[in-house]
Design a protein around this nucleic acid. Structure first.
Length: 275
DNA sequence: GATGACCTGTGA
DNA sequence: TCACAGGTCATC
C-alpha cells in the first residue's frame, strides 16, 4: 500500500530513469482520474516537448517538475518560465513504472492485457520509453500545478519540535493526528499503527495529553521507524504487520491485540503495553 | 472531529 | 455473495 516509503521509492525510480527525456505525448484514457479541473486535452497540450527536470515528493504526492519548451536546435525558450509541475498520487494501489521498471520490483514488468487496462496515465518519451501510472482501484489521481501547501510537514523531515507543536493543539486521538495529511504528510494506516506500537502509545490517547517525554519518544520512534522500514523495503515490513490480523497477538509481549476503528481506520494495538 | 462515499480486487 | 482494504474529500 503506497504510503510515504513507497512514494519515495517511486520518486527514486523517476529521478534515476525519467529525468531529462523529451516528452512526446500523453495518454489520459480515464478523465475521472484527472483531478481539480484538469482535462485530458489540457494535459495533452501541457506536457509534450518538455522534459522532467526534478522528481520531488511531499508526503504521498509525487511532484515532477518540467522545463520550458525549447525550439529544436536552439536554446531559446519558446515560452516564459518553467513548465508545469505534474503531480501523481498513487491512491491505495497505484504504481509508477518507467520503461517497465517499478520501485521495489527487480523483475521486468510483464505487461499483460489485464494490467494494461489499469494504466490510468502514461507519459510517452521521444526515445520510445514511457512512464506509466498503473492503478487497479482508481483511487489515485493526476493533477497539474497542485497546491503543495495543502500538505503539512513531510514525515521524513519532521522534527520533534514540529511534532510537539502539532500535538499540543489537537484534542483528537493521536492516531487521527498522525494520519491527517495537513499536519504531517506521508503517514498512512500501517505506518501509524507500527509507530504507535513501537512508541508504546495508545492510539486513542488525545494528542494533547502526551507529556514532553512521550512527545520526545514519539518523535524518535517516528524517525527510526521510517528509517528501518525504508531499508527493509516499505510500509508492510513492520514488526506489527504479521500480527495485524483478527485474533493476532502482540509480537512484543504476546497479549491479544485489540482491533477497533480509530481515526476512521481499522487499528490494531496492544492494550498491554500501549498506554 | 467523525462518518460515509468513492472504486475495485481479493479472499473468506 | 459480501466484507474488507487503502487515501482523500465532501458532508454532517
Amino acid at each position: 500500500m503506497p504510503e510515504i516509503l513507497e512514494v519515495e521509492a517511486a520518486r527514486h525510480v523517476v529521478e534515476d530513469h525519467a529525468l531529462g527525456r523529451s516528452i512526446a505525448g500523453v495518454d489520459a484514457p480515464d478523465a475521472w482520474y484527472l483531478k481539480r479541473g484538469l482535462t485530458p486535452a489540457a494535459v495533452r497540450s501541457a506536457l509534450p516537448e518538455r522534459r522532467f527536470v526534478a522528481a520531488r515528493r511531499r508526503g504521498k504526492l509525487l511532484l515532477l517538475d518540467t522545463d520550458r519548451r525549447r525550439r529544436a536546435g536552439t536554446r531559446a525558450p519558446t515560452d516564459a518560465g518553467l513548465g508545469p509541475t505534474l503531480a501523481l498520487h498513487l491512491g491505495m494501489s497505484g504504481r509508477v513504472v518507467v520503461d517497465g521498471t517499478a520501485a521495489g520490483d527487480p523483475l521486468v514488468y510483464a505487461s499483460n492485457r489485464a494490467e494494461t487496462t489499469w494504466h490510468r496515465f502514461t507519459v510517452h518519451f521521444a526515445d520510445g520509453g514511457a512512464l506509466i501510472l498503473s492503478d487497479p482501484r482508481r483511487l489515485g489521481a493526476v493533477e497539474l500545478d497542485p497546491d503543495e501547501d495543502r500538505l503539512g510537514i513531510d514525515a521524513l523531515a519532521v522534527t520533534t519540535p514540529d511534532l510537539r507543536a502539532l500535538l499540543a493543539r489537537r484534542r483528537g486521538p493521536i492516531k487521527a493526528v498522525l494520519l491527517d495529511q495537513h499536519g504531517i504528510a506521508g503517514l498512512g494506516n500501517l505506518l501509524v499503527d507500527e509507530i504507535l506500537w513501537r512508541a508504546s502509545l495508545d492510539p486513542n490517547r488525545p494528542a494533547i495529553s502526551l507529556d514532553p517525554p512521550e512527545q520526545g519518544r514519539l518523535g524518535r520512534v517516528l524517525r527510526t521507524t521510517l528509517g528501518v522500514l525504508g531499508r527493509r523495503g516499505g510500509s508492510h515490513t513492520g514488526d506489527l504487520m504479521v500480527a495485524r490480523v483478527p485474533g493476532g497477538h502482540c509480537p512484543r509481549d504476546g497479549a491479544p491485540l485489540r482491533r477497533e476503528t480509530v481515526g476512521g481506520r481499522t487499528t490494531y494495538w496492544c492494550p498491554a503495553h500501549q498506554r
